[in-house]
Amino acid sequence: MPDAPPIICEQVLGTLRPANAYSAEAIKAIDGRCVVKVTKMRRNQRRRAWYWIMLDVVAQQLADTTGTPWDAETLHDDLRDRLKLGKPLRTPNGRTVWKRQSTSDRSMNEIERARWTDRVATYLSRQIGVEVHQLIDEVRARGGGEPDWREPMEKAA
């Protein structure tokens, strides 16, 4: 799935441990042995992982606040609709259907991902009623590291 969260693990005492909720679920689903491709994480991948950890944080907050089953994937789809990431299509009877743009590596370069992550962080902080820096701090506390999204935008300017 191109818009699935990345499976990110970190090395701890010679073993690989999941670094986000999606990775933990993926590892639970392994039955026996599996093949893993190990790569160094590029800046775009770090930003992508940070984005999905941010969605986990906010989805948990929304679930706790509303008593409804929010998750990162549902929030991701909702964000693409609300923030209009994609393009509108029209049916013959005039109804508008939203064709969501993918956020996969193939679909977004570093600058586009940086802008998207910035927009999402600002929007989500307003939705849950916290300052952006508070949201960033919570994502860092959950293993998100540095958001690092402004650097490519400054280089592009």
Rank of each mutant, 00 (worst) to 15 (best):
Q127L: 05
W52L: 01
K87T: 14
N20K: 09
H76W: 11
P147Q: 09
K84E: 15
T91L: 09
A156Q: 13
K84F: 12
V38E: 10
V132E: 05
T122A: 10
T68A: 15
W70T: 04
R140F: 03
R42K: 12
D64G: 05
E110T: 00
V130M: 01
D137G: 04
L16H: 05
Q101K: 13
M41I: 08
D64L: 03
T122N: 09
W50K: 00
V35Y: 05
T65M: 10
E131T: 02
N44F: 08
R140W: 00
M41S: 07
W52P: 00
D77N: 14
A4S: 14
A19I: 06
A24D: 15
W50P: 01
Y22Q: 07
A114T: 02
A29C: 03
R82M: 13
N93K: 10
M41D: 06
R43M: 15
A4I: 09
G129T: 00
T66I: 05
T96W: 10
A141G: 01
P92H: 07
A4N: 14
R150G: 11
W149P: 07
R119L: 04
L83T: 06
E146T: 08
R82N: 12
S102H: 12
A63N: 02
R106N: 14
G143H: 02
A156F: 13
L13N: 15
I8C: 07
C34W: 08
A29W: 01
V120F: 03
P69E: 15
W50G: 02
A114M: 03
R100C: 08
L83W: 06
A4M: 12
T39Y: 09
D71I: 07
C34N: 09
I111T: 04
D78M: 12
Q134E: 06
S125Q: 02
A59G: 01
